[in-house]
Structure formats: C-alpha cells, structure tokens
C-alpha cells in the first residue's frame, strides 16, 4: 500500500473515535475540575474543596453529642467498608478461583457460567434481594425462628452494607484470579513438589506470587465500585451509613452541582493515587518473586 492511502486509512479509522474520546471522555473530566473549582456564577473558588475537608456536623448517638468532620467521616467510612468487603471477597474468592482452575475442563466451564449469571442481573435487584432476606421480619429471621434460634438484627447495620457489597462484586474478584490461575503452568507446581516443597509452601511460594496480577485486578474491580456505590448503603444500611457515593448523589439531587463535582474530583484524585501506588507495589513484588 502506498503511503498516501495508508495515512488516509489511518485518518478515516482513527478520527471519529479520537474526536469522540476527546469530547466525551477528556472534556467531561475537565468539567469536573472546572465545576469543582468554581462557584455558582462560575468564578474561581476553592470553597468547594475546603468545604469537603472542614464542614462539620453534630452527631448524637444517644449517649454523647459530638461534632465531627462530615465528609471526612463519610469518606473514611466508605474506605473502611470497601476495604473490608474487598478483603472478604478475596478470602472467599481466591479458594474458589483456585478450585475452579484445577477442576476438569467441563466443570470449569459450567462454574464460569454459573458465576457470570448473577453478574448479569442488575445490581439493584441483587441488592434488593438481600434487603428481603435481611429484614427484621425477613427470610433469614423466619428461618432462625423456625430453628428455635434467636433472630438477628442485620438490616440497617454496617454488616448489611458489607454483605451487599460482597455479594454484588464477588464475581469481579473471582474471574480475574481464575483467568490468571487457569493459565498457570502445572509443571511449575509439579516441579516445586518434586523438589521437596510441601503443599502449603507451593501455595505460598509458587501459586500466590504468580497469581498476584489477577489478585490485583480483582481487588481493583471490587474496591473501586464498592467505594463509590450509592445504592447499597441506602437500601441495606437504611440510609444511616452515608457513603461517599451517597454524598455525591445527594448533592446532585439537591442541585449543588459544584459541590458534587468537588467530591467527585477528590474521590478521583484519591483513587488515582491509590492505583498508582498499587501498581508500583505490584511491580516490586513481581520483581522479587
């Protein structure tokens, strides 16, 4: 192909997408920053950002009345719940991914399909199903009463929110770990045990380091949506545990677009830093391994 047609092809294929990407991926992010740093008449201000770090509110938990930093508390709570959910997903998902990867090929395929089915159900429905189960007069307590056990109060607690997050994002942890483990060279494991490495050590010294890329993408795929979710906490936490996503949504509903943008901007910056750190950590780990 001559040079002229080649560059023409290049332009024809790449231009629509490049224009689209600039208009609808890059420019909107610039708008987040623009709204975050302006007031309602679009004059420059850092008030929105400072408000996030300094706004306080009074909390009355029945015993003590305290003044707390509203949004910092919300952010720390989001981080805590998201980290706990991610760890639980990892602890539950890693063994499953391992079992799947070593299963016969047909079983692997069936399990893979089974894990993907709930993923395709809308997360609103999945979350709502848990609301039915965990309600005080719901199915779980009906079950416990039938067994003559004491009913439990779960709905409206942090545990309920964590259960919802774990359930909604569990497949996102299993699938990346599975796909890395399925490609693992079985001969490596055989070599390790042939050379006298005991079972648990094979896991710790061979399988785990090799599966780190999968773990890392699983962790990202669970952590990012659970830190930014806004529906799960409203439904399963009875609105008592405001998360950072709820804060953004609340400001959007109240039409405080500039402050909503400021919270989104801060969340984005924090996530970017986290991901860069994780990538760095991963690279170092991989080199050591």
């Amino acid at each position: 192909m001559n040079k002229k047609t080649s560059s023409l092809v290049q332009r024809l294929t790449l231009t629509p997408y490049s224009v689209w990407a600039v208009l609808f991926i890059v420019v909107p992010l610039v708008f987040v920053a623009y709204y975050a740093f302006t007031d309602s008449s679009f004059a420059f201000t850092t008030d929105n950002i400072t408000r996030f770090f300094t706004a306080t509110s009074v909390v009355d938990d029945g015993e003590t009345v305290r003044e707390v930093h509203t949004y910092l508390v919300i952010f720390m709570r989001s981080l805590k719940l998201a980290v706990i959910s991610t760890v639980i997903c990892l602890l539950m998902g890693y063994p499953l991914a391992y079992i799947m990867a070593r299963a016969p090929e047909k079983t692997q395929k069936i399990l893979l399909t089974l894990i993907m089915i709930p993923m395709w159900m809308n997360f609103l429905i999945r979350t709502y199903a848990w609301m039915t189960i965990l309600q005080d007069k719901g199915i779980l307590n009906g079950f416990l009463t039938a067994l003559h056990l004491r009913p439990v109060h779960v709905i409206g607690t942090e545990s309920a929110v964590i259960i919802g997050m774990v359930y909604d994002y569990f497949p996102y942890m299993v699938l990346p770990i599975y796909s890395v483990m399925a490609k693992l060279d079985v001969r490596l494991l055989e070599a390790a045990s042939d050379l006298g490495c005991p079972g648990p050590s094979v896991l710790r010294r061979v399988i785990w380091p090799l599966s780190i890329p999968g773990v890392l993408s699983g962790v990202t795929m669970v952590l990012v949506p659970s830190i930014s979710t806004f529906y799960i906490s409203q439904k399963l936490g009875n609105g008592k545990f405001f998360l950072i996503g709820d804060a953004i949504e609340g400001q959007y509903v109240a039409n405080n677009l500039h402050f909503a943008a400021a919270i989104a901007f801060i969340l984005m910056v924090i996530l970017l830093v986290c991901m860069a750190l994780m990538q760095k950590l991963a690279n170092r780990k991989l080199i050591v391994a």
């Binding site: 909107p28 992010l29 708008f31 987040v32 830190i227 953004i248 909503a260 943008a261 996530l271």
Partner: peptide
C-alpha cells in the same frame, strides 16, 4: 484515554458527562 472509562468509577463517568451536558 481508552482506559479511562473502565478505570473510573461509574459515578464519576456519570457526573462528568452530566456536568458537561448541563
């Protein structure tokens, strides 16, 4: 640039587009 919408949380993609449209 292609990676941005996949890495960003949905809420940020949604908010950013909404701000621009508005």
């Amino acid at each position: 640039v292609t990676n941005i919408p996949m890495i960003n949380p949905d809420i940020i993609t949604g908010i950013s587009l909404m701000l621009m449209f508005v």
